[in-house]
């Protein structure tokens, strides 16, 4: 491989990328989200989806769900880097536990008339999407499911007059009686 002359050892890595969903329990204090996001941008990690909300108000705990991609070594790094931040209580790799459920909510606006409109409604029904707003020439659908299902629904709506989409990002939780 031709390398540019450099003071650094430039290397290419060929490990395949994996997608992981991480649940991060943090102290809800000013700047905590900026810390987490700064870690990802500063170290060149990917964020595919990020969801955050306070989950235990009394204890000032927030839960951040991050979907990220990287080689297994990078995913490991991400978990360690998150874990060593001072306000981070716990990092759980929901993908690794294999016993987790992931959901996302999307609101999908579709504009059209006649046959397109009927077709959009029919598909929405098949995907268990609800109509939450309607005019004579448009619908807003609410759909919940995993990321694949939502992507698929949006793809189907595209030729039928897709106007815009608003998505919440992924939330994840483990199956069974135990907490994280």
């Amino acid at each position: 491989m031709n390398q540019p002359a450099s003071a650094y050892f430039i290397e290419e890595r060929h490990d395949p990328n994996e997608t992981h969903t991480l649940a991060v329990l943090v102290q809800n204090e000013p700047g905590v989200l900026a810390r987490v996001i700064g870690l990802f941008s500063g170290r060149g990690y990917n964020i595919e989806s990020l969801t955050v909300s306070e989950t235990e108000a009394q204890k000032h705990l927030s839960r951040i769900t991050i979907v990220t991609t990287g080689t297994p070594m990078v995913i490991q790094q991400i978990k360690h880097q998150l874990d060593r931040m001072i306000p981070v209580y716990q990092v759980v790799d929901m993908t690794q536990t294999k016993r987790s459920i992931e959901r996302e909510l999307a609101m999908v606006k579709v504009r059209g008339q006649g046959e397109h409109r009927v077709e959009a409604l029919r598909l929405a029904d098949a995907f268990r999407a609800r109509v939450i707003d309607a005019t004579t020439e448009s619908f807003v659908f609410e759909i919940t499911g995993n990321t694949d299902k939502i992507n698929q629904f949006i793809d189907l709506m595209r030729p039928l007059g897709l106007v815009e989409v608003s998505r919440t990002g992924v939330a994840a939780i483990g199956r069974g009686p135990e907490g994280m």
């Binding site: 050892f9 290397e11 790094q77 874990d83």
Partner: peptide, 29 residues
């Protein structure tokens, strides 16, 4: 660190490595 290892894929190719560190993020980085 990269000033220590030189080329990573040729770094001490035949050794078993033990790594003591207080920072878990240093492991396998």
């Amino acid at each position: 660190d990269d000033r220590i290892t030189g080329r990573v894929d040729a770094f001490s190719p035949n050794s078993k490595k033990i790594h003591i560190d207080i920072d878990p993020s240093s492991i396998n980085k």
